[in-house]
Design a protein around this nucleic acid. Structure first.
Lengths: 258, 258
DNA sequence: CGAGGGGTTGATCTCCTTCAACGGAGGTGG
DNA sequence: CCACCTCCGTTGAAGGAGATCAACCCCTCG
């Protein structure tokens, strides 16, 4: 539950963010420099700390620099449903620029480092560079696409498939972010948190994981995922990565002017 | 499975769309005129017609003019999961402007009329009016917020609560759109389609609906919802409308310049 | 009048939850 | 250096929400 606020270099996180944007959006040199000139306050939070809570009106977006962050929704009886995970380089509530009042929570799944980038700066970049506004919108669309896919998972798949799908998704995203391989990456969650993401109880997560492990598909221990049979895992998960919008050339809605 | 393409007046649909945007975003007079100058091809589709399929790269966004549209995801065994409904005035795949390649399907839940607005025009408006780009992004964020809420519903709520939540959501949205009252509106779906939205079988939708009806909360018959006890329904659904972003004054990220 | 789509009902099954307990690893204080 | 505590993973037994399978009904429409 620690929260310390430090001013310190955060260029690295910003450059990760730019790299993330460039996966999906082609930006001009000038636009790229406009992104790199963003600044923000570096903040550290311990596991389980709620960075944003419903009803909060925030003035800056949370760029994940280190650790694992999740957006979640809480029921009246205290049950939680994680709606997505965010890894370093993700601006986990970029949409707060246009919708600053949260109706969701953002929490530190593991100890995390956040760079809080003022909306003022992000808005400024959007106004001056339509290509940036559209790039932000595009990344928001990718985020929405993940939510939509999770709706399908929770609505129509069984326990093993749900877990497998999350593992495939996080693998692809980590690989695209340069943070590991799709078959080998850090996922610093407990089985309980994995249950909060897949809509199941800890007990059933545990049994399902065992079954998946027994089949030789996957090993998940102490915050690390090792996938032994990617093809088989994607098969039981019915995983098709196209929804992540990580492939194909970066988009540009209009030709890049010289 | 009919698909007829007609050129005909669609000003009405465009004005509905503008009205929808103005709920969440303050636009200048010039920006509003830029929206109203949008044009598109009017198309009609029969029930169950798939307007967009995964893999399609579309060149125009679908503005719903009449009827009920859904976005859904299909599993390999044929099971479907609807991820959201769209009512007249909704541009159901506005995000296709920035992500033209679909990884989802869009289908006609009832007989529908669509106005297909070319991306070219929408992009043009975004480039010339940053306020419009940001407004589009904001509406996309609201759409994502609905997905996220559905993740919570499917992951953590029981059958009655899931159905009740959809009914509350569609009531609020219809009311905000001027298409009925929150307690009385058209929802032209079958129980099967309602099951596809709530992640349950037709049989169980039927039994749950009966129970809700027996409790005097709601009547759903022949495509029409009549809610008799709004407070009780929102209570069992744990429905809090803030995620719909329909309240509060329209946003503007920078003062409207004269 | 027959066909088909949508709604309804009953019986049975099963996946996942619930409840309760235990074990191991790591951290902390006496 | 050991005792203790807490967090996380694991296991067992029992119960329940919803799925599955199979009818049947009613209404509409050709």
């Amino acid at each position: 539950m620690t929260e310390s606020i430090l001013q310190q270099p955060n260029d690295y996180a910003i450059s990760l963010f730019l790299k993330r944007l460039l996966i999906r959006s082609a930006l001009t040199g000038e636009e790229q420099r406009a992104i790199l000139s963003l600044t923000g306050e570096t903040q550290r939070f311990g596991t389980h700390f709620d960075i944003v809570l419903p009803g909060h009106t925030v003035e800056g977006a949370c760029l994940v620099a280190k650790g694992l962050v999740a957006r979640y929704d809480q029921m009246l009886d205290g049950q939680r449903q994680i709606t997505s995970f965010y890894i370093p380089g993700d601006m986990c509530d970029l949409h707060s620029v246009v919708a600053p009042k949260a109706s969701w929570s953002i929490t530190a799944v593991s100890p995390v480092t956040i760079v809080r980038v003022p909306h003022r700066q992000l808005i400024d970049r959007c106004i001056h560079y339509p290509g940036i506004a559209i790039g932000f919108w595009r990344d928001g669309t990718a985020d929405a696409s993940v939510f939509a896919k999770w709706v399908g998972n929770l609505g129509r798949k069984n326990a093993k498939a749900r877990i497998a799908h999350v593992m495939c998704e996080m693998g692809m995203r980590n690989e695209a972010a340069g943070l590991g391989e799709r078959t080998s990456y850090e996922l610093p969650t407990t089985q309980e948190q994995l249950g909060e993401a897949t809509g199941m109880t800890t007990v059933h997560v545990n049994r399902s994981l065992q079954e998946i492990r027994r089949e030789g598909l996957l090993n998940f221990r102490s915050g690390r995922v090792e996938i032994h049979d990617w093809d088989a895992l994607t098969h039981i998960a019915e995983f098709d990565p196209s929804y992540l919008m990580l492939d194909g050339p970066p988009h540009r809605v209009a030709p890049i002017a010289a």
